[in-house]
């Protein structure tokens, strides 16, 4: 494991923990897109189908369990928690799941490395992760007013993607036969989706003003 991969995993971990702690502590999910969180829960569920079958390392198994546990906990909080669910901005969070799910499923059925159930599900999870942030970005764009924690959540997720690209570049030059076109192209698209958000995030940080996205 190289430093970029580890730093990427840590920012990914930090992003979900920031979100979970925010919801748990202030008992509010205002500004958080349930659609995006449900898509992430599905991403982890379909990607880690073989979690108890294929063993990579203790680190991998623990991280997978944390990602599964935290993503389903966040969804549970927003949908079921007596207090938290009242703060959910249902009328603003209108992005349709199917609009993202269907193209990803079709693409996974057509473009994959092996036509098996496990492999197609894994590929589907890669495609879906690339676009799962869209409902959250639309919600931020709509409400414009972004609290610090939601801003940090999206920033940390974007940082995780950027670090993973550095990790692939590093692995490409240090490992033999390390070519994963599907992961790379989906990963680059995913990182590009954050570019616009990053621009406004750094602007607000530079001018030390509250983060606000243009309408």
């Amino acid at each position: 494991m190289n430093i970029f991969r580890l730093a990427g995993d840590m920012t990914h971990l930090a992003s979900v923990l920031v979100l979970l702690l925010k919801i748990h502590t202030i008992k509010s999910c205002s500004g958080v897109s349930l659609k995006t969180q449900e898509l992430y829960a599905l991403v982890f569920a379909t990607r880690y189908l073989d979690i108890f079958v294929t063993y990579v390392s203790f680190y991998n198994t623990v991280m997978k369990l944390i990602f599964l546990g935290s993503s389903f906990s966040i969804v549970w909080y927003i949908r079921r928690h007596r207090v938290v669910r009242r703060s959910y901005d249902k009328d603003q969070d209108t992005f349709r799941h199917l609009f993202l799910l269907l193209p990803c499923l079709v693409l996974a059925l057509v473009i994959n490395e092996k036509f098996t159930f496990k492999e197609v599900m894994w590929t589907f999870s890669i495609y879906l992760e690339a676009v799962a942030i869209l409902p959250q970005l639309v919600l931020l764009q709509r409400t414009r007013n972004i609290d610090n924690l939601t801003g940090q959540y999206v920033f940390l997720l974007g940082a995780y993607r950027a670090l993973y690209i550095l990790n692939w570049i590093y692995r490409y030059f240090t490992e033999e036969h390390y070519v994963h076109w599907i992961t790379w192209i989906a990963g680059i698209i995913q990182t590009l989706l954050y570019a616009d958000f990053f621009y406004y995030y750094f602007q607000s940080w530079k001018n030390s003003v509250k983060l606000e996205l243009p309408a």
């Binding site: 995993d9 390392s57 490395e113 894994w122």
Partner: peptide, 10 residues
């Protein structure tokens, strides 16, 4: 490895 096979990333 190809695809999820031998894939060690999260």
């Amino acid at each position: 490895g190809s695809g999820s096979m031998g894939h060690d990333e999260l």
